[in-house]
């Protein structure tokens, strides 16, 4: 299962989502793609996910904010994947992001 975390996502939203994913995993692996401005600050927010997880394989990728639209466009299959949309996303990227999300089936969007 893939989770795309875009922009500055609220810690509480992230924590609630992570609990849900970890307690009811769809498969044995969780891939988190964090679209950020190149700072590791987001790892502090992800720490709760990591510390509450025992059984799931977890991989965290850091991507540039500009890549989100391209990355989602290239997705062939979205199976119970999530996009968490946070704050501090330039309007232009946000518009394109909403558009590409609409075209993809099986992609759940949560505003955080």
């Amino acid at each position: 299962m893939r989770v795309y975390i875009v922009g500055d996502v609220d810690s509480e939203v992230l924590y609630n989502i992570s609990k849900r994913l970890i307690q009811h995993p769809q498969d044995n692996k969780l891939e988190l793609y964090v679209y950020t401005r190149n700072s590791l600050r987001y790892m502090e927010k992800l720490r709760d996910i990591i510390l509450n997880n025992i059984l799931l394989g977890l991989v965290i990728y850091e991507r540039k904010l500009d890549n989100i639209v391209d990355d989602l466009s290239k997705l062939n299959e979205c199976n119970n994947d999530f996009v968490l949309i946070g704050k501090d996303i330039p309007q232009e990227i946000l518009d394109k992001l909403r558009k590409v999300i609409k075209e993809k089936h099986g992609l759940e969007v949560i505003d955080g």
Partner: peptide
Amino acid sequence: PRYIYISP
């Protein structure tokens, strides 16, 4: 990747 946790 930034972080990998290898599950059982």
